[in-house]
Nucleic acid binder design. Structure first.
Length: 194
DNA sequence: CGGCTTTGACCGGCGC
DNA sequence: GCGCCGGTCAAAGCCG
């Protein structure tokens, strides 16, 4: 098993973009994860503020430090803990016709709500959600013609955990410098051997 | 001034 | 039909 390969594969998740497709391709190449699921959950722990001169670090830039082994996990969606996402899809099934929705959720343990994933996002809404202590934020990719959206919400159950839900596939590459920086984060990750 | 956030209004789906 | 709820719109404001 090529270690670097796994990190690239993890990077793809965050880079998204054409990325979602590449991710599935690489994942199946590795052959250790089921790749057919429309929903993937990623659990990453312990993000700490980067220690570099502020001038070198864009706002909201964080690195992952001190990860315990196997703390980063990739799940095939099972629909148990995230009913809302699952519900949206099942609600669409009419006459067995399944529209494939590119929707993915990431669970991160973080002090900040927004992780830099290499794309630029504009917030277009915020809602209080029933039975949730924290509001849900809605973002759209700012790239012209790109319709990718994401939702960010902190769990009231565990206040340190942020759930980020992506919808759609980017029609453009990432902001390279930003993506590169984010790759540094991923270099600290370990994959979960399912 | 442009790009972004904030925030109340609006709208559609769904259950009763 | 009505009300609730989640998602989106858009005007106003903020900030570099």
């Amino acid at each position: 098993m090529n270690r670097n390969r796994i990190f690239i594969f993890l990077g793809r998740i965050f880079s998204f973009g054409a990325a979602a497709v590449k991710f599935f391709f690489v994942a199946s190449e590795i052959g250790r994860l089921a790749t057919t699921a429309a929903h993937i959950f990623l659990h990453v722990s312990h993000f700490h503020k980067i220690h570099k001169p502020p001038s070198l670090v864009p706002r909201n830039k964080y690195v992952c430090a001190g990860l315990m082994k196997n703390e980063a996990k990739i799940y095939q969606h099972c629909g148990t803990s995230y009913g809302s996402v699952d519900k949206m899809k099942s609600g669409k099934k009419e006459g067995g016709k399944e529209t494939k929705k590119h929707k993915y959720a990431f669970q991160t343990r973080s002090q900040v709500d927004i992780l830099d994933d290499g794309y630029r996002w504009r917030k277009y809404g915020q809602k209080t959600v029933k039975n949730s202590k924290f509001p849900r934020s809605y973002y759209r990719c700012t790239h012209q013609g790109c319709i990718v959206k994401k939702q960010v919400q902190r769990l009231s159950k565990d206040e340190e955990i942020v759930v980020t839900t992506y919808e759609g596939i980017h029609s453009h590459p990432t902001d390279e410098t930003s993506a590169e920086n984010f790759d540094q984060i991923l270099r600290h990750l370990q994959t979960y051997n399912a």
